[in-house]
Every structure is written in C-alpha cells, then in structure tokens.
Simulated assay, not measured.
Amino acid sequence: MSRIAYVNGRYVPHGSAMVHVEDRAYQFADGVYEVCEVFGGRLVDETRHLDRLDRSLRELRIPAPMDRRALLTVMRETVARNRVRDGLVYLQVSRGVARRDHPFPDPPPAPALVVTAKSLSAAAGDKAAASGVSVITVPETRWARPDIKSVSLLPNVLAKQQAKEAGAREAWFVDPEGRVLEGSSTNAWIVTHDGKVVTRQADTHILRGVTRAAVSDLIGRRNLTLEERAFTVEEAKAAAEAFITSASSLVIPVVRIDGAPVADGQPGPVATALRKGIHDVTEMSHVVTPPFV
C-alpha cells in the first residue's frame, strides 16, 4: 500500500506530496514540528505534544493552522490511512507561503500544515535497547533557543552524521563548561552510583522532551530519586548507567561514551526498567481504525 500525506487540506500520495517553493519553512526554516509515537494504533501523549506545539508556535508568532480537535482528527486520519500500528506521526507547521523577504509577511499568509505517518519496527528498537548504544560528544553549535522545536536542524544533522561516521547512535551536545546539554534528537540521562537519575533541567538550552516528561513521571512512580541538573561529560563516563530518550526510541541504554564503556559496558537495570514501564505512564488516545478502502 502506498503511503499517504496530508498537505494543506488534502490527503495525497506520499510520492507526489509537495509544498510551494516559497514556503517559508523551505527558504528560512520558519516553521516548527512535532513527532508523536504511535503504539498499538494509538497516539501516545498527544496532549503533551500539542501543548508543546502550541508553545513553539507562540514563540515564533505563527498562528495555529486549525484548532486542536481538527488537528487531532488529521493526525489520526493520517495514521489510519497509512495503517500504522507502531511508528510515528510527523506534523510540520510553517508561517506559510509568501514572496521571499526576511520580515514576517504583511498581510500574513495562512500557515502551512503537513502531516505524515510511518511504521517502525518495534523489534529493532528492542534489539538496540538490549545491547545498548554508543554516543559521542560534540561542541554546542546550535542557536540559542533549542527549546523551540523549530525545523532549523542543520547542526543536529551534522552532529548525527558525525556520530554515524564514528559508529555511534547519537551525539551529545556539550557546552563550553563541559556540561552535557542533550542529544541531536534525544534527551540525555545518567544514573549515579547512589541511584539518582539525573537529566539537565528543562531550560532554554534543551528541548522539553515529551518522553523525558513521561520518564520523569515514571521515576516518581517507581520511588526513584530524580535530579534535574547539569552533568559533565566526565561525570557521565563515570556513571553507573546512561541512557537517551525520545518519542522515536523511547528509552535506550548508553553503554559507551566517546569510545569509553559506561560501567561494565552493558545496559543497566534502571534504564531497562524505565523502558519496560514507559507506556504505564503515557496518555493513550483511542485506537485508530484503518479505512477499508
């Protein structure tokens, strides 16, 4: 079955889905996006994702393309038309189409909306989690507001490619003081030897990950101790465990940092348990039913 995309009011074949050459996301990265997990045919944590989308739009002064109920209908319909049981739904909102000029267009155009969905292999994620992954560290090169989920991702792309070329899964951005910020597409965590679970505080230097929030909830439910603070690369290398979180990977143990093993170089019990229990604390939408056409 061919994939289907939603583009500015129409469901179209994925292979012929197009936006205008003067869409401001294309020419200026003037847009925002969200990626929501689909698990068992359900949207995961849709409220948190759309709350974050609203915040990103406000920060860039882009109006919402439609109200929340309509947007959820489009997301669910896109998931259904693509028959996704386990995977991701991606939505992107740009300021719209206008003659190329740096200031906001006046009068403002209608925001442009694109939604796609794709299946992912749950087995592949489980395999990565079972063996653990490697990360490398790279200097912070992004703009000063990575807390806004904008489509301006070139530094993230370059960091991810550097990780790939080094045989690693992820790259952690590090500030000039040697403190870990977050990954190119994930939040970063460590577990100290006295059992504290540590991740950087949610300020303007990192993205407020939806899966990060769910893991924080799960930590509280499991009576573990959460510390939201900066940690250094050296502290991470000396930690009992490390892991990464995102909507696409959930919780994945990190077993090597810059080539050095974390503890015994094997996935640790805290990260493993958090991955197993993550859907116990996430919001689940109703089951999305594929169309019979």
Score class of each variant (00 low, 15 high):
Ala112Phe: 02
Ser248Met: 05
Phe243Thr: 07
Gly259Arg: 09
Ala129Phe: 01
Phe243Ala: 12
Asp280Glu: 15
Pro65Gln: 07
Phe173Glu: 01
Ala124Met: 09
Ile257Arg: 04
Ala168Thr: 05
Arg212Asp: 00
Pro146Lys: 10
Val93His: 01
Val287Gly: 00
Asp23His: 10
Ala260His: 10
Gln161Cys: 03
Gly183Trp: 09
Arg55Tyr: 15
Val191His: 00
Asp54Met: 01
Val254Ile: 13
Val254Arg: 05
Ala159Gly: 11
Met18Trp: 06
Lys160Thr: 12
Pro109Arg: 12
Arg222Trp: 11
Thr282Lys: 08
Pro63Trp: 07
His193Thr: 02
Lys160His: 10
Arg52Leu: 10
Val262Asp: 08
Glu22Gln: 14
Lys118Gln: 09
Arg142Cys: 07
Ser184Trp: 08
Ala128Val: 01
Pro261Ala: 13
Ala240Trp: 05
Arg256Cys: 01
Phe243Cys: 07
Pro291Ala: 03
Ser131Cys: 03
Thr137Val: 03
Arg221Asp: 08
Tyr6Met: 05
Tyr26Ile: 10
Ala124Asn: 08
Glu140Val: 09
Ile190Leu: 14
Ser56Gly: 03
Asn187His: 10
Arg85Thr: 12
Val174Ser: 07
Val255Leu: 05
Ala29Tyr: 14
Ala144Lys: 08
Ile206Pro: 05
Ser184Asp: 11
Gly15Gln: 10
Ile62Arg: 10
Pro109Ala: 11
Leu57Cys: 09
Met66Ser: 11
Tyr90Asn: 05
Tyr26Leu: 15
Ser119Glu: 14
Ala202Arg: 14
Val74Asn: 12
Arg52Met: 07
Leu50Cys: 02
Ser56Leu: 08
Lys118Asn: 03
Val12Gly: 08
Ser134Gln: 13
Lys196Leu: 12
Thr186Phe: 04
Phe243Trp: 09
Ser285Glu: 05
Val262Phe: 04
Arg42Leu: 00
Thr225Leu: 11
Lys276Phe: 00
Thr192Arg: 12
Val74Ala: 12
Asn156Ala: 09
Arg222Tyr: 08
Glu228His: 15
Leu274His: 00
Arg275Glu: 00
Leu207Phe: 10
Arg212Ala: 06
Ala166Lys: 12
Leu88Cys: 08
Ala128Gln: 09
Asp264Pro: 04
Arg100Met: 02
Glu77Asn: 05
Asp67Ile: 13
Ser249Arg: 03
Pro267Cys: 10
Val180Gln: 09
Ser131Glu: 13
His205Ser: 14
Asp175Glu: 03
Leu91Val: 01
Val180Lys: 13
Asn223Cys: 06
Leu57Trp: 15
Glu234Leu: 04
Val151Arg: 07
Thr225Lys: 09
Val19His: 03
Gly265Ser: 06
Arg145Asn: 06
Ser184Lys: 07
Val97Lys: 04
Ala80Glu: 02
Ser16Glu: 14
Leu91Gly: 02
Val254Cys: 02
Tyr6Pro: 02
Thr245Ala: 15
Ala230Ser: 13
Ala144Gly: 11
Ile62Lys: 05
Val174Ile: 02
Arg69Thr: 09
Ala17Ser: 12
Asp106Cys: 13
Ser285Asn: 05
Pro269Gln: 07
Ser2Glu: 14
Thr73Lys: 13
Gly40Val: 01
Trp172Cys: 12
Val262Pro: 03
Pro107Tyr: 13
Glu234Thr: 01
Asp194Glu: 11
Gly9Tyr: 12
Val287Phe: 01
Glu234Cys: 00
Pro267Phe: 14
Arg229Lys: 11
Thr47Lys: 13
Asp51Met: 13
Ala130Arg: 14
Gln27Ile: 06
